[in-house]
């Protein structure tokens, strides 16, 4: 029977998709507002996950609450990690990208610098923690059968709910608040935004902090389901970019929809191709969208 397998693939796809969406939002912001492809963004996921690990190492993940494998302490750790990762993202901008921007460096110089920053960030994690997998908690979880033959862990459902909440909150912020509108204005035209009195550096700073915080959440979620290792961010690099571009650069809704689509495509593709090629799926999606509709689903043709 093929349906149960598809059901499971759909469920896995949605869960992975939520995580990709969180990371893709940051990518789409940097593509839209700073206008460069930040190859180092995926490392923010890794850093977020590991920073939370440090906090958990001191404070513990908390006694398992209900069906979950952790307590509120892990969430608190994730929040702190989000703040710290957001600041780290801004820090990397101040140290590297902003200097290049001020010098009028071409976007491609920035991409190369991002590549270099990514290498440094990833290997700093290897330096401190090595390559072995790490876990937030040693609690074993029982999978829950949602519908016949579709099994998910309670942690995964919680993560999905939390991710969706974050996305809704962010959308409200972008559409209703002054600052959110300023961000959207900058994404369309930095020059016009300045002429409206919007301070570019303030918006840039906020963008980095938000992007970093979201990435940290994604990293913690990956670490929960099921583990942390230094490559978790890098493994998602193509998926993040595929999702952002598929959805339309600069569009929050686009990044979210794109994230879920990429997650679903990756998991559904496992039904037909060997798992070894899973990493090529986001790239194929990317190629298709760039050929068929380069501005993405929600993007505007410039």
């Amino acid at each position: 029977m093929i349906q149960p397998v598809i059901g499971q693939a759909l469920a896995d796809g949605i869960l992975t998709g939520a995580i990709i969406a969180l990371g893709a939002i940051g990518v789409t912001f940097t593509l839209g507002i700073m206008r460069f492809a930040n190859f180092a963004h995926s490392e923010l996921l890794t850093w977020g996950g590991y920073i939370a690990l440090v906090i958990v190492a001191f404070a513990g993940p908390g006694t398992p609450t209900g069906p979950l494998s952790f307590g509120w302490q892990l969430l608190a750790a994730a929040l702190v990690a989000a703040v710290l990762t957001g600041l780290a993202a801004w820090g990397v901008d101040v140290l590297v990208f902003r200097r290049l921007r001020r010098r009028g460096a071409q976007p491609l110089t920035m991409v190369f610098a991002a590549f270099g920053a990514a290498l440094v960030m990833r290997h700093l994690v290897v330096l401190v923690w090595g390559h072995e997998s790490r876990f937030y908690t040693r609690e074993l979880q029982m999978a829950v059968e949602l519908v016949p033959s579709v099994r998910v862990l309670p942690d995964q459902i919680f993560i999905l709910g939390l991710a969706l909440t974050v996305m809704v909150a962010l959308q409200a912020f972008l559409t209703r608040s002054r600052t959110g509108m300023a961000m959207r204005a900058m994404a369309e035209s930095p020059a016009l935004a300045q002429v409206c009195g919007i301070e570019v550096e303030a918006v840039v700073r906020l963008t980095w902090i938000i992007s970093g915080a979201l990435a940290a959440f994604a990293g913690v979620f990956i670490g929960l389901t099921p583990q942390l290792h230094p490559e978790i961010g890098f493994n998602l690099l193509l998926s993040l970019f595929a999702a952002a571009i598929l959805g339309g650069t600069g569009s929050l809704t686009g990044a979210v929809v794109g994230g879920f689509l990429v997650g679903l495509a990756e998991n559904l593709s496992l039904l037909v191709i060997s798992p070894g090629y899973k990493g090529a799926m986001p790239f194929l999606l990317l190629l298709v969208i760039l050929i068929v509709r380069p501005q993405g689903i929600f993007g505007e043709r410039s």
Binding site: L31, P107, G276
Partner: peptide
């Protein structure tokens, strides 16, 4: 396919090409 893309999209696309080729070689 890729030359008409703007600069950083070209970078992402060619990066993806290389990753895919390496996956084929591996699998």
């Amino acid at each position: 396919v890729t030359i008409r893309l703007r600069g950083d999209y070209l970078a992402i696309a060619t990066f993806g090409v290389a990753v895919s080729i390496q996956l084929v070689a591996l699998n």
